[in-house]
């Protein structure tokens, strides 16, 4: 091996080492409209392409197939809007949040917006492990009455497909709070368990409303679902995702 080559190898090794330091931009974004109908993997790729377009010094994963280092807080289902989802985007050097927002904003498609960005020097916990709760808004005629009704029940059984079999689950313990002050007759806001340890999908709530509270199926099918925000920590002392390190 030539001297030059040896030197190059060393620089490369050092850079790799240095790259283990993640300069993280914790990015809160909202999503609505056409782009809500894509899957989680598609959304990840979309963010990846957009970050690449900014020309900022993104950190790439190691290995044969390097990809921009990004961690999403919680997958967003197809057809669900969001007002407050999070992605940690890693840079190889420090990038100011303002610069990041300025460069990303014009490149994102309609329906994807960056709300705010906080800089994290080196997050201790993976963003995914931080999330414990989520707030959703469900929009359908008379939905609030339905939610109030099912919340008086001790057990709310819904059916879910798991590994090809239909299993019955009690979702009552996963619904924590109906948020009166943000709700109207046709828009119900509620806080539920979310994340890797226990996750309630909004479809299950709608199914319960049809089953136990007389919500019409056609209204459930057409219900608008928006994830309002994600939280971490133990209920009722939950904190915003930005506040975690």
């Amino acid at each position: 091996m030539s001297k030059k080559k040896q030197y190059d190898e060393r620089v490369l090794a050092m850079t790799r080492q240095q790259h283990l330091t993640h300069y993280v931009l914790r990015t809160r974004f909202r999503r609505y409209g056409a782009v809500s109908y894509i899957g989680h993997l598609d959304l990840m790729n979309l963010f990846g392409r957009t970050v690449r377009k900014t020309g900022l010094p993104i950190l790439y994963s190691q290995g044969f197939n390097p990809r921009p280092e990004m961690v999403f807080a919680l997958p967003l289902g197809v057809g669900i809007n969001s007002e407050g989802d999070y992605v940690d985007i890693s840079m190889s050097v420090k990038v100011e949040p303002e610069e990041f927002i300025e460069k990303m904003t014009p490149l994102l498609p309609d329906g994807l917006e960056i709300v705010s960005v906080v800089y994290k020097d080196e997050p201790k916990n993976s963003l995914m492990s931080v999330v414990t709760h989520a707030e959703y808004a469900l929009e359908a005629p008379g939905i609030t009455d339905c939610i109030k009704k099912i919340m008086t029940m001790d057990v709310i059984e819904v059916e879910k497909k798991a590994k090809g079999k239909i299993v019955t689950n009690d979702i009552r313990p996963q619904i924590l709070k109906f948020i009166e002050e943000q709700s109207t007759a046709d828009r119900a806001c509620l806080m539920v368990m979310a994340g890797s340890s226990s996750n309630l999908r909004p479809e299950s709530i709608l199914q319960a409303c049809v089953r136990y509270a007389g919500l019409e199926q056609v209204h459930a099918d057409n219900a608008g679902v928006t994830r309002l925000c994600l939280y971490g920590g133990e209920y009722p002392n939950t904190k915003l995702i930005e506040d975690f390190v």
Partner: peptide, 12 residues
């Protein structure tokens, strides 16, 4: 309608 898009594969 949203319900139509949600009833099909790959609404994107």
């Amino acid at each position: 309608p949203h319900s139509v898009l949600m009833s099909v594969q790959s609404p994107g």
